[in-house]
């Protein structure tokens, strides 16, 4: 969680310095969702997520170098600079891809779950999406199909109360997305998304259920993004005091307070960990800055596996 936060703070700096182009969507404040879910997964499991996905990638074990190079559009990025922030993909850790079309990642994870079922691999698939995505048709199509086929799939809704600049109350007639699970005959659980241990426990039991062939589960993680939706958005549409209220339940603070109290960690050790991670982030950024951009001769690469051009003459 600390690594994710430090990395995302640095990504924002890089964006302001114009080293990261286009747009970024930070998940600062939501780190426990990514970390808790990732902790409960095993090798061979697969994940799709959203454009707000740096945290998911890092939680699954993506290398900071590979991530930072991709952020800067470098050839040594995970996607060789073709993807960028919104399409972060790392096959080696089971990250099938972040997606920039709201809700489009849900059926893709469902397909991965289908593969696991057909190959009887014992693996599961996970898809992360926002509260806003619960109003996209594909949410409903995917929940329905996954339930009919009893696929080993976890639907993880990170409900951060906003879809872009609109509060959930303005777009959705219910407060709890988990209620929608009933319509698709699967369990729907509300989880404290700021408490990484709660997220882990809920994911672990839903994953066990999926691996046992009992089908999909919808987990709704109640969470909050401290930053705006993207880029330079500061969130002027938020109620006064709302941010401060959520910051009192900061996921990193909740975990460290518990660990301090249990004697598992002390302040000094925590600062050491933090320093080491800050150094790691700094090194990755400096390394990525020095890496080359893709060559202009590679424009056609990765369009077709067969390498054929669409027009033969």
């Amino acid at each position: 969680m600390v690594k994710i936060r430090l990395a995302e703070e640095e990504i924002q700096n890089l964006f302001m310095a114009n080293l990261v182009r286009g747009t970024t969507h930070l998940a600062i404040g939501q780190e426990a969702c990514a970390a808790g879910v990732a902790l409960a997964l095993s090798k061979g499991d697969t994940v799709t997520c959203t454009y707000r996905g740096h945290g998911h990638a890092l939680a699954l074990g993506m290398s900071l170098r590979s991530l930072m190079a991709e952020m800067m559009g470098k050839e040594s990025g995970a996607c060789k600079g073709r993807g960028g922030s919104m399409h972060m993909t790392d096959k080696s850790i089971g990250l099938l891809g972040a997606n920039a079309i709201v809700g489009a990642q849900l059926p893709i994870a469902m397909g991965a779950a289908l593969t696991a079922q057909v190959k009887r691999a014992g693996a599961i698939a996970v898809t992360f999406f926002g509260d806003g995505a619960a109003n996209i048709g594909l949410f409903h199509e995917s929940m329905n199909m996954a339930s009919v086929w009893k696929l080993p799939l976890l639907f993880i809704c990170e409900n951060n109360l906003y879809g872009e600049y609109s509060h959930i109350r303005e777009t959705t007639p219910i407060d709890d997305i988990a209620d929608r699970a009933a319509a698709y005959a699967m369990p729907g659980l509300i989880v404290d998304g700021q408490d990484v241990e709660a997220v882990y426990a809920a994911t672990e039991s839903a994953a066990r259920r999926a691996r046992n062939g009992e089908g999909p589960t919808l987990l709704e993680l109640k969470t909050y993004r401290y930053g705006g939706h993207s880029r330079a958005d500061t969130g002027p549409y938020r109620k006064p005091g709302e941010l401060a209220q959520w910051q009192e339940r900061d996921p990193i603070d909740i975990l460290t307070a518990r660990m301090f109290a249990d004697g598992e960690l002390d302040q000094e050790e925590f600062l050491e960990i933090k320093d080491a991670m800050a150094q790691e982030v700094f090194d990755a950024v400096e390394w990525a800055k020095a890496e080359p951009f893709p060559s202009l001769q590679s424009l056609d690469d990765f369009v077709y596996a067969s390498g054929r051009r669409p027009c033969l003459r």
Binding site: T46, T48, L96, A104, L106, P107, I108, A109, M110, G111, A112, A113, L114, T115, A116, Q117, V118, K119, A125, G137, L138, E141, S142, N144, M145, V148, W149
Partner: peptide
Amino acid sequence: PLRVRDTPISEQAIIGAALGAAITGLRP
């Protein structure tokens, strides 16, 4: 029934599922 399936009337999900299956080792 494991390899040949009737789907719900969900065209987007049919293609999305086929894609997810294709990138994880099936040939749908």
